[in-house]
Amino acid sequence: MRAEHCVTRNHIEVWHERVLPSGLERVRFWVVLRGSLLPILVWTGVACFAYFIYGPAVAVAIGGLFALSFVVGFGLRRRARHSVRCSVYGALGGVFDKSVGGF
């Protein structure tokens, strides 16, 4: 895959599509985070709730689940010959997207 086409709207999907640029252009990390505010709040809220109710071990387990999902998504994208930047953004956006699919 050519580097100039990797970090585009076609390869990075964030949960809230209204923050994406209208055409094919580079997507910045802030756009990925801004488009994923609800999933970030859900992950943070669940981890905080688990920490206060069940203890820090459960919150760490939830963080580990997030990290594992991110690593698997990153690995799959790298195997498909995406750039490192595209793989990071896409894996992060993918975890957020799939984690709140029911909303």
Rank of each mutant, 00 (worst) to 15 (best):
R2D: 15
A3F: 11
A3L: 13
E4S: 13
E4N: 14
H5G: 15
H5E: 14
H5D: 14
H5T: 08
C6N: 05
C6K: 01
C6T: 04
T8W: 05
R9M: 08
R9L: 11
R9V: 07
V14S: 02
H16P: 00
E17T: 10
R18I: 08
R18W: 06
V19P: 00
V19T: 09
V19F: 13
P21M: 07
P21T: 06
P21R: 07
P21F: 02
P21H: 07
P21C: 06
S22P: 07
G23S: 11
G23Q: 08
G23T: 10
G23R: 08
G23I: 04
L24V: 09
L24I: 09
L24K: 12
E25V: 10
R26Q: 12
R26H: 08
V27P: 04
R28N: 07
R28V: 02
R28W: 00
F29M: 05
F29R: 01
W30A: 11
W30N: 06
V32C: 03
L33M: 11
L33T: 03
G35A: 00
G35N: 00
G35F: 01
S36L: 00
L38E: 01
L38V: 10
I40H: 02
L41Q: 04
V42L: 00
W43Q: 13
T44K: 06
T44S: 14
G45P: 05
V46F: 01
V46H: 02
A47K: 00
C48D: 08
C48K: 06
F49I: 03
F49M: 08
A50M: 10
F52H: 11
F52M: 10
Y54L: 14
Y54W: 13
G55C: 12
A57L: 12
A57P: 03
A59L: 08
V60I: 15
V60W: 09
V60K: 08
G63L: 03
G64N: 11
G64S: 11
F66D: 01
F66I: 12
F66C: 06
L68T: 06
L68W: 06
S69L: 10
F70M: 04
F70V: 12
V71G: 00
G73L: 01
G73R: 02
F74T: 02
F74P: 01
L76E: 12
L76H: 08
L76Y: 05
R77D: 07
R77Q: 12
R77P: 04
R79E: 10
R79W: 14
R79P: 04
A80S: 14
A80T: 02
A80Y: 01
R81M: 09
R81Q: 14
H82P: 03
H82K: 10
H82M: 09
S83W: 07
S83L: 11
S83M: 09
S83T: 15
S83Y: 07
R85A: 15
C86W: 03
C86K: 03
S87F: 05
V88S: 03
V88M: 14
Y89K: 08
Y89C: 06
G90S: 15
A91N: 05
A91F: 01
G93I: 02
G94D: 12
G94F: 02
F96Y: 15
F96L: 13
K98Y: 13
K98V: 15
S99N: 10
S99M: 13
V100L: 12
V100C: 15
G101F: 11
G101Q: 14
G102M: 14
G102E: 13
G102V: 15
F103E: 11
